[in-house]
Amino acid sequence: MAEPATHAHGASGQGESRRDFLLYATWAVGAVGTAAALWPFVHSMNPAADTLALSTVDVDLTPIEEGQSITVMWRGKPVFIRYRTPAEIEAARAVNVDDLPDPQPDEERVIEPQWLVQVGVCTHLGCIPLGQKPADPKGDFGGWFCPCHGSHYDTSGRIRKGPAPANLEVPEYAFLDDTTVRIG
């Protein structure tokens, strides 16, 4: 790119290296400046302040009976909260962890054993698995069944059969008191 200018001044060896240096320095400053100017545009597509402000949700657990499930909205996604029966907990813990596609003991997936909190989005391609309502199919392992491509989840929300690669995601959450949980 520098050729015509170089020719126009017909500089000898000494002048050329200085010109080259100035040229490269200019390009470098221009590239950095352009990148800096692009960043605000890229970043503007990230979640805005008001979106981030909505990223926690508090749930009152008192109305849920043992064996019942509820679905709450968190960050635009369904979160499954199930009040598990002792039988379900036992079924989840009786499994040999090493045999699972995504090995994880049930103890690592819960804070209080009876409360299973997980993001209700199939880890395969993002559908919402069935199993929240009493009439729903719950799959071969008594947990959840994804109707899109037939993934079966057990009573701990772990993938047992089907194309999904991983267990249902457990969000960050904490118990504010015995009956209130804050997700996010």
Binding site: P40, F41, H43, S44, N46, A48, A49, D50, T51
Partner: peptide
């Protein structure tokens, strides 16, 4: 107003 206040660099754009 949300663009001006909440969107990242929205004020600038």
């Amino acid at each position: 107003e949300r663009i001006r206040r909440d969107v990242n660099y929205g004020w600038l754009i």
